[in-house]
Amino acid sequence: MGKLHHFDLRSLLDSHHCRVYIETGTGAGDNLLHAASLGFERLFSSEVSPEIADRARQRLADVPQAQILTATSEDVLKTVLPLIPAEVPVLYWLDAHFSGGEPQPGGNADPADLNMRIPLAREMRLIRDLRSRSRDVILVDDLRIYEDGPFAGGPMPDHAQTLAFYDRNVDFAFRLFRHTHTIARDYGDEGYLVLKPR
């Protein structure tokens, strides 16, 4: 799992004036707490597990601008993004996989579960479709799920790989955002994809 602390968020916020933070996957709430300390006006987190969401809500009880929504990331994006004016930049922290749907040792996930396990391409398409005129910043963790590289955290273990080899790429990100964003790879930890508006 990636770490939002890996990035110099203050510099990103100063450069791109992001006022809203949206993350997919709340976990213990560490990334949400870190983002809240930087002065975002609103923070949204999607979490499919009611138990995880409830624990994180208790931890963030003193952060009224943070809202944890118990729903899939796609449902949260469909609900929240139309409410944010296009001129208000958003910073996204996208988990490249559904952490509650880790594959079992011994093989790839059942294709029927793939949409739940690997929602990144659909999340990015929603962002592009619903925020086509925005100046948003997108940070994605766990790049090693999608491609090989000199990742500090090592390659994706074979037993944990969800994608077939011919699906292991981030071509969809370039198709969606190559005209509006610069796209860079960061090989720290398990790898990141960084999209900044041109």
Rank of each mutant, 00 (worst) to 15 (best):
R42F: 12
F44D: 11
F44G: 11
S45Y: 10
S45L: 10
S45E: 07
S46G: 12
E47T: 09
S49K: 05
I52M: 09
I52T: 14
A53N: 05
D54K: 11
Q58E: 13
R59C: 01
L60W: 04
L60I: 03
D62E: 06
V63F: 06
V63M: 02
V63A: 07
P64T: 02
P64L: 02
A66Q: 02
A66C: 05
L69N: 02
T72K: 00
T72V: 01
T72C: 00
T72L: 03
S73M: 00
D75A: 14
L77P: 06
L77A: 06
L77D: 07
T79C: 07
T79K: 12
T79E: 10
V80W: 09
V80T: 07
P82L: 11
P82K: 03
P82H: 06
P82T: 01
L83H: 06
I84M: 00
P85V: 01
P85F: 02
V88L: 05
V90W: 07
V90N: 09
Y92K: 08
Y92A: 10
Y92G: 10
W93N: 12
L94P: 08
L94Q: 10
A96S: 15
A96E: 09
A96F: 03
H97F: 14
F98K: 12
F98S: 14
F98G: 13
S99V: 03
S99E: 15
G100N: 09
G100R: 08
G100P: 09
G101W: 12
G101V: 05
E102Q: 14
E102K: 13
E102Y: 15
P103K: 04
P103S: 14
Q104G: 03
G106T: 00
G106R: 03
G107P: 06
G107I: 06
N108C: 11
D110E: 13
D110T: 08
P111G: 14
A112Y: 09
D113P: 03
D113I: 10
L114M: 15
N115I: 10
M116S: 13
M116H: 14
R117Y: 04
I118K: 13
P119W: 07
L120S: 13
L120K: 13
A121L: 07
R122I: 09
R122T: 14
